[in-house]
Deep mutational scan, measured.
Amino acid sequence: NQASVVANQLIPINTALTLVMMRSEVVTPVGIPAEDIPRLVSMQVSRAVPLGTTLMPDMVKGYA
């Protein structure tokens, strides 16, 4: 089972991601792979992401 990136806190719209905002977790459906966490740092979210939400490619500007 592949771990995905999950929000560790509420991430407001247009916030630049930092390591403390993200954790890896095995979830369904699968989201952005956990190994991409270093690449996500400083990228902005395109919408508010609630705590515990799996990050999907369309939620991060410039990821897809």
Score class of each variant (00 low, 15 high):
residue 1 N to Q: 15
residue 1 N to T: 15
residue 2 Q to W: 12
residue 2 Q to M: 07
residue 2 Q to K: 05
residue 3 A to K: 06
residue 3 A to C: 09
residue 4 S to W: 02
residue 4 S to A: 03
residue 5 V to W: 01
residue 5 V to M: 01
residue 6 V to C: 04
residue 6 V to E: 01
residue 7 A to D: 02
residue 7 A to R: 00
residue 7 A to Y: 01
residue 8 N to A: 12
residue 8 N to I: 08
residue 9 Q to S: 08
residue 9 Q to V: 14
residue 11 I to D: 00
residue 11 I to K: 00
residue 12 P to Y: 05
residue 12 P to G: 07
residue 13 I to W: 08
residue 13 I to F: 08
residue 13 I to A: 11
residue 14 N to D: 13
residue 14 N to F: 07
residue 14 N to G: 11
residue 14 N to A: 09
residue 15 T to E: 08
residue 15 T to I: 12
residue 15 T to A: 07
residue 15 T to V: 10
residue 16 A to P: 06
residue 16 A to G: 06
residue 16 A to D: 05
residue 16 A to C: 08
residue 18 T to S: 09
residue 18 T to Y: 03
residue 19 L to Q: 10
residue 19 L to W: 09
residue 19 L to R: 11
residue 20 V to S: 14
residue 20 V to L: 08
residue 21 M to H: 09
residue 21 M to Q: 04
residue 22 M to H: 00
residue 22 M to C: 03
residue 22 M to N: 01
residue 23 R to I: 11
residue 24 S to Q: 10
residue 24 S to V: 11
residue 24 S to E: 11
residue 24 S to Y: 11
residue 25 E to N: 10
residue 25 E to H: 06
residue 25 E to V: 06
residue 25 E to C: 05
residue 25 E to S: 07
residue 26 V to S: 14
residue 26 V to H: 06
residue 26 V to D: 15
residue 26 V to T: 10
residue 27 V to E: 02
residue 27 V to I: 09
residue 29 P to D: 10
residue 29 P to M: 05
residue 29 P to I: 07
residue 29 P to Y: 04
residue 30 V to K: 05
residue 31 G to S: 03
residue 32 I to L: 05
residue 32 I to S: 00
residue 32 I to A: 01
residue 32 I to T: 00
residue 33 P to W: 12
residue 34 A to H: 15
residue 34 A to Q: 07
residue 35 E to V: 09
residue 35 E to Q: 11
residue 35 E to P: 07
residue 35 E to T: 11
residue 35 E to N: 09
residue 36 D to A: 09
residue 36 D to T: 12
residue 36 D to S: 14
residue 37 I to E: 03
residue 37 I to V: 07
residue 38 P to G: 11
residue 38 P to T: 14
residue 39 R to Q: 12
residue 40 L to C: 04
residue 40 L to E: 00
residue 40 L to M: 12
residue 41 V to C: 05
residue 41 V to P: 01
residue 42 S to E: 08
residue 43 M to D: 03
residue 43 M to V: 05
residue 43 M to E: 09
residue 43 M to K: 11
residue 43 M to C: 07
residue 44 Q to Y: 11
residue 44 Q to R: 07
residue 45 V to D: 02
residue 45 V to M: 10
residue 46 S to V: 14
residue 46 S to Q: 14
residue 46 S to K: 14
residue 46 S to R: 10
residue 47 R to P: 03
residue 47 R to S: 10
residue 47 R to M: 13
residue 47 R to Q: 14
residue 48 A to Q: 12
residue 48 A to E: 14
residue 49 V to N: 01
residue 49 V to D: 02
residue 49 V to A: 07
residue 50 P to Y: 10
residue 52 G to L: 05
residue 53 T to M: 12
residue 53 T to K: 07
residue 53 T to N: 12
residue 53 T to R: 13
residue 54 T to H: 03
residue 54 T to K: 05
residue 54 T to A: 06
residue 54 T to P: 06
residue 55 L to V: 12
residue 55 L to R: 00
residue 56 M to W: 08
residue 57 P to Q: 08
residue 57 P to C: 13
residue 58 D to C: 15
residue 58 D to I: 12
residue 58 D to M: 09
residue 59 M to P: 01
residue 60 V to T: 02
residue 60 V to E: 02
residue 61 K to I: 09
residue 61 K to L: 10
residue 61 K to V: 14
residue 61 K to Q: 11
residue 61 K to S: 14
residue 62 G to H: 14
residue 62 G to D: 12
residue 62 G to Y: 08
residue 63 Y to G: 05
